[in-house]
Design a protein around this nucleic acid. Structure first.
Length: 456
DNA sequence: ATAGGGTTAG
């Protein structure tokens, strides 16, 4: 009895140590426990799996081996934790292997396992398969949890079936299903994504009527949608509503609002919100810093931007690829192309997973100061390109009257299956037509058509 | 475990 109590105490202890990211401390507590005769049980190991999975599946999987060596029997929770972490670690394909392995070991999946599996299938863009599992759960009466329904509705929304999600929601309600705030937020987000603002607003009303209190997530989702839709009156109305309920106005909301206001050039309002944010005492994270640095880059206050960079370092935060990209874009805007190129080099040295946007900013910057040959040089050195890269180049090549080169570039872009703005395509055709090459324009047009058909 | 935030063109 004493023993069991000690192990429970051990578990509580290492649980909070892991939560505080004190891995080594947790490890030493486990080892000391063993020395004192307090043996870890399956719960101890499951907590460890959860903690180690943030370093990848293999780190979590290693705990399974430890369990086998310690002769502790794996249970369904061990596997569910592992399978759930495949989604977070972008290794969804491995979740199916783990599922097989689990069944082979004679561990029967529970509702959680099926929930995770559904979620993975939706994430992989396979709503049909997810739907089949959902039906199985219902038919076999696996006692679906509220998460089952939430995952189902969210997955439908994310895969372009928002209307079906809504139908499911009404159907469930009809059968006595009581939605939680999360359920409502999923629907609001789904409706916003397909631009059905009015329905989204109606759901907001329903939330209040059902005596739930909408939270910051509800509001930021709606607000982002309003900003995208350029509905200025509703935007202001909603902003006021958000501000009047201060407690729902968190760092996420501030970043959304400030980011959107920067985009539409409302400098004065941005400043007000920035003052507000610091007065409320919101702890700035790297995303907030990026937002603020972007603001100072856009207003040309580079000293302030650099000051924030110092602050990031002092706080022990780490600049991410967004910070660097924003700086590169800012340097270009300030006319310091050399500095931007240097910063990009530095960024490459640091080894970020993607520097495509930063390259695009440099190409755009070079185009804007009409150093088109340099822009082409950078373009040629890029390993990955997207429609932005091509758009920047196409427009400035047209302006520079390099018709044949731009025609070639446009075709290679389309042939590689890349989408490019229709207006950029039109620009090239118009250029050719009105510069004495109507025949060439015609030929290019049919080539574009063929490339489009081949890509479909 | 399932909902929300930051960069690039037009």
């Amino acid at each position: 009895m004493v023993h069991r109590f000690s192990t429970r105490l051990l578990n509580v202890c290492i649980g909070s140590l892991f939560k505080a990211h004190k891995l080594e401390k947790a490890e030493s507590v486990i080892i000391n426990g063993i020395r004192l005769g307090v043996l870890p049980d399956v719960v101890t190991y499951n907590i460890s799996i959860d903690a180690y999975c943030c370093f990848g599946i293999d780190a979590g999987y290693a705990i399974l081996h430890q369990m086998r060596e310690a002769d502790v029997t794996l249970d369904i929770i061990s596997y569910n934790s592992l399978i759930a972490s495949t989604t977070r670690n972008h290794q969804i394909d491995r979740s199916f292997d783990l599922f097989d392995e689990m069944i082979q070991r004679g561990i029967a999946p529970d509702v959680w396992s099926y929930n995770i599996l559904m979620h993975d299938l939706f994430k992989l863009g396979k709503p049909d398969l997810a739907n089949r599992i959902f039906k199985d759960i219902i038919i076999a009466d696996y006692s679906p949890s509220i998460a089952t329904f939430n995952i189902m509705m969210n997955g439908l929304c994310k895969n372009g079936y928002t209307n079906n999600a809504f139908m499911l929601f009404r159907n469930l309600q009809h059968h006595g299903f009581v939605p939680e705030l999360l359920t409502y937020n999923i629907l609001v987000s789904g409706l916003c994504k397909i631009g059905r603002l009015r329905s989204a607003r109606r759901v907001l009303k329903e939330i209040v009527e059902s005596s739930h209190v909408p939270n910051a997530i509800t509001y930021t989702t709606l607000l982002k949608c309003f900003f995208r839709k350029k509905k200025s009156e509703e935007r202001i109305e909603l902003l006021l509503e958000m501000k009047s309920k201060r407690y729902t106005f968190d760092g996420f909301a501030y970043c959304t609002v400030i980011g959107a206001l920067i985009k539409i050039g409302k400098v004065k309002q941005v400043t007000e919100f920035m003052v507000d944010m610091t007065e409320i005492g919101i702890e700035l994270d790297i995303v907030s810093y990026n937002t603020l640095i972007n603001f100072y880059c856009k207003t040309g206050e580079s000293e302030k931007a650099y000051k924030l960079l110092d602050e990031i370092e002092k706080k022990g935060l780490e600049c991410d690829k967004y910070t660097h990209t924003i700086m590169i874009d800012g340097l270009c805007r300030a006319g310091n192309i050399k500095g931007a190129a240097q910063h990009l080099k530095y960024m490459n040295m640091m080894g970020f997973d993607s520097n495509l946007v930063a390259y695009n900013c440099l190409v755009d910057g070079l185009c804007k100061v009409v150093q088109i040959d340099d822009a082409i040089k950078v373009y040629k050195s890029m390993e990955v390109r997207d429609s932005f890269t091509y758009s920047f180049l196409v427009y400035s090549l047209c302006r520079d009257k390099r018709y044949h080169f731009v025609a070639k570039l446009l075709l290679s872009c389309l042939r590689s299956g890349m989408k490019i703005l229709k207006s950029a395509q039109r620009a090239v055709l118009l250029c050719l037509r009105y510069s004495g090459f109507p025949g060439e324009a015609k030929r290019l047009k049919s080539k574009i058509r063929i490339a489009r058909i081949l890509n479909h």
